[in-house]
């Protein structure tokens, strides 16, 4: 496996469209729930341990070769907000395009053909990691880190938060990301034998409700 490939996939500048999404931070800022570095940290921690963990398990399972269709259905059931399902598929489609150009693979071709509107992003992320010769642990790390770095960068733009403070938030979450990544791989290994039903289903009510409110705004800075 190539360590540099992990850096390519995890790089926020990888052209997969992630920069256009705030991971729910824009709605939380508008509602006055994120106002500073401390509330950003609490937001990121909550996201990490709910939808973040679910996404990481899906990505790790896809990287282990679990059927993408089964994982995509499991992701749908764990994403009640239609706005978030649309966002996840849009991001999945953009990642499919970027990953196929970067690491051509028959599995990525197959998922592109099966899901013309895009598969859920974590499914594609796992397949991209696989195509790049990376491990399930790498896929889990990419997913978890992206899940917290997206909101952190967005809040710098939304609130004018000091970028040093936002990066400090990410550094303080590092141990929790490490633990979550290891647990995601253990879960993904059970998915291989027991099916997608063993995936976690942890939810964050305000992420879902906030995403629906956000999607109805006429003008917004981020797509989700």
């Amino acid at each position: 496996m190539s360590r540099a490939a992990l850096l390519v996939l995890a790089d926020g500048r990888f052209p997969a469209g992630g920069h256009a999404h705030s991971g729910g931070a824009e709605a939380a800022v508008r509602a006055g729930r994120i106002t500073d570095a401390a509330s950003l940290e609490a937001f990121c921690r909550g996201r990490l341990h709910t939808s973040g963990v679910v996404a990481a398990c899906v990505a790790a399972a896809a990287a282990l070769g679990v059927d993408p269709g089964e994982l995509d259905r499991a992701a749908d059931a764990r994403t009640p907000s239609p706005a978030l399902r649309v966002a996840a598929r849009r991001l999945g489609r953009q990642l499919t395009r970027a990953a196929r150009a970067t690491w051509p693979s028959p599995e990525l071709d197959a998922v592109a053909a099966l899901f013309p509107k895009g598969a859920h992003q974590p499914v594609v992320l796992g397949l991209a990691a696989r195509a790049a010769g990376l491990t399930a642990l790498d896929a889990a790390y990419c997913s978890l880190y992206e899940g917290v770095s997206g909101p952190a960068t967005a809040v710098v733009r939304l609130l004018g938060l000091d970028p040093f403070d936002a990066t400090g938030v990410l550094a303080r979450l590092a141990d929790e990301v490490d633990r979550a990544a290891r647990e995601a791989v253990e879960t993904a290994e059970r998915v291989v034998t027991d099916g997608a039903g063993v995936l976690p289903a942890r939810s964050a009510p305000l992420l879902e409700i906030g995403a629906e409110a956000h999607a109805a705004w006429p003008v917004r800075l981020f797509a989700s």
């Binding site: 729930r33 937001f43 909550g46 709910t50 963990v53 964050a204």
Partner: peptide, 12 residues
Amino acid sequence: APGGWDGPAGLA
């Protein structure tokens, strides 16, 4: 409970 449950993403 997992961290952040009562934060801005969870129940606030």
